[in-house]
Amino acid sequence: MEYIIHISILISIYAILGLSLNLVVGFTGLLSVTQAAFYGIGAYVTAILLTSTGMNFFLALIIGMAITGVCSLAIGFVLSKFKDDYYALGSFGFNVIIYSIFLNWQSLTRGPLGIPGIPRPSLFGFTFSENVWFLALSIVLLILVYFICRFITGSSFGRVLKSIREDEGAISAFGYRTLWYKLAIFVISAMMASIAGSLFASYITFIDPSSFVLSESIFILAIIILGGLANNKGAVIGAACLILLPEILRFVGFPDDIAAQMRQVVYGVILVALMLYRPQGLIGEYRL
């Protein structure tokens, strides 16, 4: 049972990451692979505030979102100078930069040693120390993020995002300043990833830079490509599939260490197979 709860918490966290990245990649057509950086900023801000000031988790979560928002605004602005493949490469670069900051700003992040002893959230005297309660919290936040995504993508604003994805030049000729739209969604998306980071830090109670490497961003991208670009449910389904798959491998008898490595191989294979046979993903509404 503990095991199922653990997997479900991971799925919730990755579903939030998938939902957030889908806003940028699936709906707006900006191929960003820097989501793990924002996930990491959220996690680090939360970890540092909780361990050094004993601040309330929920306040730390909000401060994390604000700091991530500011960072993503700057990064999104620089990235707005790029198009298509260069955009992807530029975002790749930012993930590497943020990762090296986690690794090298040792006075703040303790670098490779990581930050241990991050407390679990508490609210009005109740502490989410039992995993089942932490799962409940994760699911509540997931639902919140899901409905915000649904609201955004179903709104007139969401329709403009899709038109930017389809033909940015044409939609600007009809009177839209597309830069503001791209920045807005990039920042919203980063702030959602920051929520996932706060949850992760407080759940595992330990973080180090290795959780926020570039391949993590690519994993998040794989989630939405599998589940389906520009489809909110797809992001959740994709997260469930990609988290469960290595577990299933383990279940059918692969040794633990091989199953862990298989995760990388499996999602690589899935990505290639999808691009070949089903570029819109399981229930996607858009092809890259």
Binding site: F157, E166, D167, G175, W180, E285
Partner: peptide, 28 residues
């Protein structure tokens, strides 16, 4: 011809009818 290809016909029209400001577009 430059349409918003992977969008329904109706959305190709609605997108030029709606508000240009982000805030108003969010809360249509």
């Amino acid at each position: 011809v430059r349409l918003f290809e992977q969008m329904p016909v109706i959305d190709n029209i609605l997108v030029v009818l709606t508000e240009r400001s982000i805030w108003k577009a969010l809360f249509e």
